[in-house]
């Protein structure tokens, strides 16, 4: 299944967060500096667990790696306008969630080329924008949203404080009961019983 050999024929099994496994060629995986540091020289006995990322994301990342296997060595970021048609399609067909997942996975796997292209794409979103326009792009919470969030947090903190106070009170009561001398306890119980007996006899 997996071996330390560096031949591009070698296939490695990758395990995703769903527990599913799939094949990736050694040549594609070697574009990941994380993989190189962890498994290249020692090989892997079973599936390589990249369980922080789902199957779709990992497949997308390795699809890019498989495609760029034959490209010349990476030498710094390439201008977005110089990207091939395949590259542009690759990026355009991703939705935003997938794009963020791919950046995160690519960042973890340390695939320089993919990370830099993705980040260059994000930088283009901010190109030529002033602060107000950037706020719209970055989707920062508005003042009302921040206020609402703060209120919820304050409520939570107040509830937690109440619970803590109650717990402290209960602990204090238990302690005082334990601390009462035996004679005093006997006396209290006797008084209670006497009161009960008297109320019975009156009836």
């Amino acid at each position: 299944m997996t071996s330390p050999a560096s031949s591009s024929e070698v296939k490695y099994l990758i395990e995703s967060s769903e527990g599913n496994t799939f094949d990736v060629s050694g040549a594609a995986l070697r574009q990941s500096n994380t993989f190189n540091a962890m498994f290249l020289n020692i090989g892997a006995d079973g599936p390589i667990p990249f369980t922080d990322y789902n199957e779709a994301t990992l497949k997308k990342v390795f699809e890019y790696c498989e495609h760029s296997v034959n490209e010349e060595n990476y030498s710094g970021p390439k201008h977005q306008d110089d990207l091939s048609k395949w590259d542009l399609n690759f990026f355009n067909e991703m939705d935003q969630k997938m794009f963020i997942d791919v950046i995160n996975a690519s960042n973890f796997l340390d695939i320089e080329r993919l990370t830099s292209y993705c980040c260059e794409r994000i930088a283009r979103m901010l190109r030529g924008k002033n602060t107000q326009e950037m706020i719209k792009v970055i989707t920062l919470p508005t003042a009302e949203e921040l206020e609402a969030k703060q209120k919820v947090e304050e409520k939570k903190a107040a509830a937690a404080k109440k619970v803590a106070e109650k717990a402290a009170e209960t602990a204090e009561k238990t302690e005082t009961l334990e601390e009462l001398p035996v004679q005093q306890l006997v006396q209290t119980t006797r008084n209670k019983l006497t009161r009960k007996y008297l109320s019975f006899s009156n009836e």
Partner: peptide, 20 residues
């Protein structure tokens, strides 16, 4: 502009964005 939550990205990815 299409919104994109840049601040949710890992620090190294934001650094890459800064380089561009």
């Amino acid at each position: 502009p299409k919104p994109f939550p840049i601040l949710q990205l890992p620090f190294l990815a934001i650094e890459e964005v800064f380089k561009a």
